[in-house]
């Protein structure tokens, strides 16, 4: 049975992880390479690196980070944040990324999704959707935002997810901008609406504050994977605890490669 994936997200700017200064077991919790290796050994199913600075210099540094991580971490790596075109994608893939996440660039030029999928394969192209709940109206609805959630685009999130997949997106990374940072749970309605719309896997993001939230996103939200940053970075929970909790509740998760669990 296909297992549900637990994905820690590393927000990086100028080569440093933004959150996560409370790691007791790491020499330098701000070092994305060291943190990535730590999560790998703990049993993370994939890693996502987001360049939240999204500057040209930051991008060069990210290439170096990805190169170093990919030499010691043997799980899929997704890189996103400020990637504008095919050349950016090629550079990141060449450095060792397995998937490229595009957001603002995809909204402004949807052809980039098709181009990327044609050149590198759909499995490489993750379309990140930042969605905000529309105010008013009888039925729930969400519109997409770009530039890190700052600019509302007036485009319906469900319509956009369908279009992105038609163009060749192999996966959707869905972030709720209402829920993000509040640690009060994922936007389950949004997650299930998108997950039921598209045939490709959906990663739920934004709002994780407890292990119950992860469970809800997978069951009620019907997500294929859950992404979280702060609950792992601040060591509120470990990856291992998260998986043990989900396994206990009957969710299929990969537990056979964590430290001390290897047979």
């Amino acid at each position: 049975m296909l297992t549900k994936r637990i994905i820690p997200c590393l927000d990086v700017t100028q080569g440093r992880v933004v959150k996560g200064t409370s790691f007791a077991d790491l020499r330098d919790a701000g070092d994305p390479v060291e943190l990535a290796a730590f999560y790998y050994e703990e049993g993370a199913d994939e890693l996502v690196f987001l360049d939240i600075g999204a500057t040209p210099e930051g991008r060069d540094i990210m290439v170096d980070v990805v190169e170093r991580v990919s030499k010691q971490v043997f799980i899929p790596l997704t890189v996103g944040g400020g990637l504008r075109g095919i050349d950016d994608m090629r550079r990141m893939l060449g450095a060792g990324a397995d998937k490229i996440s595009i957001n603002t660039a995809a909204v402004h030029s949807p052809g980039l999704i098709a181009d990327g999928a044609r050149r590198f394969g759909s499995q490489c192209i993750v379309v990140a959707i930042d969605a905000k709940r529309r105010m008013g109206g009888d039925t729930p609805g969400w519109e997409i935002c770009t530039y890190g959630g700052r600019v509302p685009m007036g485009i319906d999130a469900i319509t956009w997810s369908r279009r992105a997949v038609e163009l060749g997106a192999g996966e959707i990374l869905l972030t709720s901008w209402d829920a993000d940072g509040h640690r009060a749970g994922y936007d389950l309605e949004l997650t299930s609406a998108i997950s039921e719309t598209v045939i490709v896997p959906v990663i739920a993001s934004g709002g994780a504050g407890s292990l119950e939230h992860l469970y809800q996103a997978l069951v009620v939200g019907k997500a294929d994977a859950v992404l979280a940053a702060s609950i792992f970075h601040y060591q509120t929970y470990s990856i291992r605890q998260a998986k043990a909790y989900l396994a206990e509740k009957g969710i299929p998760v990969r537990t056979d490669q964590q430290i001390g669990v290897c047979r």
Partner: peptide
Amino acid sequence: PQSLKVPHMGWNQ
């Protein structure tokens, strides 16, 4: 088969 998410993406036994 189209009854499940495609691509088959993730860890399986």
